[in-house]
Nucleic acid binder design. Structure first.
Length: 587
RNA sequence: GGCCCCGUAGCUCAGUCGGAUAGAGCGUCGGAUUCCUAAUCCGAAGGUCAGAGGUUCAAAUCCUCUCGGGGUCGCCA
């Protein structure tokens, strides 16, 4: 348990004890009581808001209640002092030994430090990427992939049972276009000559389909390339989407993302999942035939005509209008199959669902949440995380992406250029709902400006110190388990204790970032921890007594090695969540 | 017109289930290197948290309205 939760329990316990003694009312609601590090270091190590939160119900002035609680807290083991401040905060200082204990805990726990049980093993489904199987992933997909994967890892660290899922949109018109494009490329391979832009009009023009066409040409004869034949089309779609999914799986592998479950829209439709879902809704009177108002935009679509449609009563679940389930040609809308898909996820045991989408899908959030409420009868919750655009830059100038020529910058282009670790870290240096500038030149710079480097450098510096130490100490003395037994009480400088406090904050950060579904907080935390470490390092330049390696004092040296090893472990623990490999050396 | 996201230092952005004197990097100015990687660090200056009301012990954070930027709006996914 982390130090903050531990003392929160103490505070709540004291309130209960005093209620038992009749000094406070029974049954006070302590759910809003928190124990946190104060914003100002001068206010001590911990601060509790209990007195302010409980004052009204207790019928006391906040400061009077705070005094009562502070008196009891002061007597607790590990607390060096407790005083009332401001409107009724209880500020506590902790014994240095308690912080030394935290460091020993880090060293014994290793990169598992920060693991939490708040998830309680509850299943969570994180659906992300879900790019159409019509081509390689581009940079925007990459952001969703990194975000989803890191969020999944964060939730795992917080104790959830996470499934990473990819929804393959292989049933719409776009895969027919793909099939025809692949057939055209196969024809090209069979000797009809190179296709120009005009010949690819309305098809996917990218070069990535040329090898698919060649492969297709080797498998079948020209007669089967006629996509107007339904049976042929069926085959071509299967073939081409399988090829595209291989391509995408390769892209994801290059990014270090591994998906647990791929679900095919086509399979869902074929096994009747959409009919099932719609029957389910219909039985509850949530489907009806009606006519929608035209959109009130300044330009109503020219071909708009009022038409009776099958609609879902999304307005009953907080949406603004009811939503269509069938297109005019009688096939299901994307929304209808997506309802079936989310019902399928719910029936597989996921009452906790997270979807990661691009920001251009923002208009669908309400209806999808409405649908999840409907098909689970209120039992499931869907959180949709929208990832904003990535602006790709080259030394400050926008990188041109020509979609028309099919020559857009792919995710693998970027990974090849800067490496998967850099891509992953940079993608997580902003909240998902902020647009992200990704400068190809800057992200590989070795400077303070580059957060990836800055954090990696801190880790590498620790490794460098340990390499130097290996000249004076046995390898067995330097492993974390041995360092946990070093004379840690000799760590007495305020900057050293501050560094431990920063480490002690990691478990708390894991929990809050996981609950907020915000993995970028991990990247910021690591930047902060790295900064504190670099600062301490430089103090050793001003004052040689603060250096980590002191030839004349083996005990203190071991204590400091324990300290820096702890930093490296926490950084590694955080980088593991982000899916970034901690480096032992920078060149 | 409806809905969603955003508006915080000159720039790029953190901080938002309400907490004390609002933070970081860059940029500007001034410093630190016979030394465990100066690839780093220390200090200074820089704010009407878009604006106006409201809720309360307490608002950048919650509510309402206004302004500004972006996204989106049946038969694309």
């Amino acid at each position: 348990m982390n130090v903050f939760n531990r003392f929160r329990d103490e505070v709540v316990g004291i309130v209960a004890d005093m209620a038992g003694e009749g000094r406070l009312p029974q049954g006070l609601d302590c759910s809003r009581v928190s124990v946190e590090p104060p914003r100002e270091a001068a206010h001590g190590d911990l601060t509790a808001n209990a007195a302010m939160v409980l004052a009204k119900a207790a019928g006391m002035k906040p400061r009077d209640l705070a005094e009562l609680l502070a008196e009891r807290l002061e007597g607790l083991e590990g607390i060096a002092g407790a005083e009332v401040a401001g409107p009724g905060f209880i500020n506590m200082r902790l014994d240095a030994e308690l912080w030394h204990g935290c460091l020993a805990d880090v060293l014994r726990t290793g990169t598992a430090y920060g693991d939490s049980s708040i998830g309680g093993g509850a299943p969570v489904n994180v659906e992300f990427v879900s790019a159409n199987p019509t081509g390689p992933l581009h940079v925007g997909h990459g952001r969703g992939a990194v975000f989803g994967d890191a969020l999944a890892a964060l939730l795992e660290k917080a104790g959830y049972d996470v499934t990473r899922e990819y929804y393959i949109n292989d049933a719409g018109a776009q895969v027919e276009v793909l099939a025809k494009s692949a057939a055209a490329r196969a024809g090209e391979a069979l000797g009809t000559g190179e296709l120009d832009a005009a010949a690819m009009e309305g098809l996917y023009p990218g070069d990535y389909l040329k090898p698919v066409g060649r492969k297709l040409a080797e498998r079948i004869d020209a007669a089967r390339l006629d996509a107007d034949d339904a049976e042929n089309l069926e085959f071509l779609i299967r073939f081409a989407t399988d090829e595209m999914m291989d391509l995408i799986r390769g892209d994801l592998r290059a990014l270090g993302v591994s998906i647990d479950v791929f679900t095919s829209e086509r399979d869902l439709v074929e096994r009747g999942a959409v009919d099932d879902a719609l029957r389910f809704l219909d039985e509850r009177d949530l489907v009806y035939t009606g006519v929608l108002e035209p959109p009130k935009g300044k330009q109503a679509p020219e071909d708009w005509e009022p038409r009776p449609q099958m609609l879902f009563r999304a307005t009953r679940f907080g949406d603004d209008v009811d939503r269509p389930l069938k297109k005019s040609d009688g096939t299901w809308t994307y929304f209808a199959t997506d309802i079936a898909y989310h019902l399928d996820k719910y029936r597989r045991g996921f009452a906790n669902q997270i979807d990661v989408w691009g920001a251009d899908h923002g208009g669908y959030v309400k209806r999808m949440r409405a649908a999840v409420k409907a098909v689970s009868e209120g039992a499931a919750d869907l959180d949709v995380k929208l990832c904003q655009m990535v602006k790709l830059l080259e030394a400050g100038a926008p990188v041109k992406m020509s979609k028309r020529a099919g020559a857009f910058v792919t995710l693998t282009d970027v990974i090849d250029r800067v490496g998967k670790d850099v891509v992953r870290f940079i993608m997580l240096t902003r909240g998902s709902d902020a647009t992200l500038d990704f400068d190809l030149a800057k992200v590989t710079e070795q400077s303070r400006e580059n957060p990836v480097f800055y954090v990696q450098y801190a880790h590498a510096r620790v490794c460098s110190v340990l390499r130097h130490a290996a000249e004076e100490f046995e390898a067995t003395e330097l492993v974390p388990e041995s360092l946990a037994a070093a004379p840690l009480t000799r760590l007495a400088d305020a900057a050293e204790i501050d560094l431990i406090k920063a480490m002690a904050d990691w478990p708390r950060l894991v929990e809050s970032a996981a609950q907020a579904h915000e993995p970028h907080r991990v990247a910021y935390y690591l930047g902060d921890l790295a900064a504190r470490f670099h600062a301490l390092w430089n103090k050793g330049k001003d004052d040689a007594r603060l250096r980590f390696l002191l030839p004349e004092d083996r005990g203190l040296t071991l204590a400091r090695l324990a300290l820096v090893q702890g930093v490296a472990l926490v950084i590694a623990s955080g980088l593991n969540v982000l899916g970034v490999t901690p480096l032992e050396e920078l060149r």
